[in-house]
């Protein structure tokens, strides 16, 4: 169980009500969740259910209307370089080169140290030879890896990924999942990963948090007890996957 981890992030009774034109919509309803240090957690739910909103409150971009998020016991009040939010590949800065993007958050370091880190992360995400390239010259998968590298370069202890592979084709997406796991195993960051793809969640996560439609509540937390690399045709994988399919109320037949 998750108790094997030290708790990194604790969300307590998070509620979020958006008010617009006099109407109020409840998006998050009393969500409590612990995330372990170094854990890979997936938030899974249908589009528009509010899982991104939850991620944004955890990252400090939104303040919840009820409850609080604590990281290492400290209340989250705003964004912080110790925890980096990775958008879909659209978040890379188009006016900076690959190097410039990766070095973006490293402005406090000395020049030598900065260059060393940039080189390290370019290698980690396999963008050697593209140091001077601009994002518009890169493919979608490369941009996504660049954004992950930019996030890792500032050595955050938590990464928030908001459907990071949603805009990629299915082959690139599979490759990127493998890359992300490789990087996670090398760096052991805490990762909170939002997705609406059940297969993706079961392939990646230590635990999958299944969320209901709006207002989002935690429907179930599924522990994926298969060691990496995961065999996605193993009976245990299929069992867990189908369990989630049922949980969400989908028949797994087309």
């Amino acid at each position: 169980m998750a108790q094997a981890f030290k708790t990194k992030l604790r969300a307590e009774g998070i509620s979020m009500v958006f008010k617009r034109d006099g109407n109020s919509t409840s998006v998050l309803d009393n969500i409590s969740l612990d995330v372990g240090d170094g854990e890979f957690l997936c938030l899974l739910g249908p589009s528009g259910c509010g899982k991104s909103t939850l991620l944004n409150t955890m990252a400090g971009f939104l303040s919840p209307t009820g409850g609080e998020v604590r990281i290492d016991g400290e209340v989250v009040t705003g964004p912080d370089p110790r925890r980096i939010f990775v958008f879909q590949e659209r978040g890379v800065f188009p006016w900076l080169t690959v190097e410039g993007n990766i070095g973006f958050g490293l402005f406090k370091l000395s020049r030598g140290e900065r260059e060393r880190r940039i080189a390290h992360y370019i290698k980690l995400v396999g963008l050697q030879g593209f140091e001077k390239a601009y994002p518009q010259e890169l493919s979608g998968g490369m941009k996504q890896r660049l954004e992950v590298a930019r996030a890792l370069a500032v050595n955050p202890d938590t990464l928030y990924l908001d459907e990071p592979f949603g805009a990629l084709d299915s082959i690139t997406r599979l490759i990127m999942r493998g890359e992300l796991l490789r990087i996670w195993e090398a760096e052991r960051k805490t990762i909170i990963f939002v997705t609406h793809d059940i297969e993706e969640a079961v392939q990646l996560a230590d635990r999958v948090v299944v969320m209901s439609a709006r207002p989002a509540r935690i429907q179930q937390i599924v522990e994926i007890d298969i060691p990496h690399p995961r065999d996605i045709s193993s009976p245990r994988y299929l069992e867990l996957r189908d369990g989630i399919f049922e949980q969400i109320g989908l028949a797994h037949k087309i």
């Binding site: 705003g78 964004p79 370089p81 980096i84 958008f87």
Partner: peptide, 13 residues
């Protein structure tokens, strides 16, 4: 300017 860019900037401190 897409809010995403501003957020990313704030995120990096």
């Amino acid at each position: 300017v897409p809010s995403m860019f501003r957020r990313a900037g704030r995120n990096f401190g």
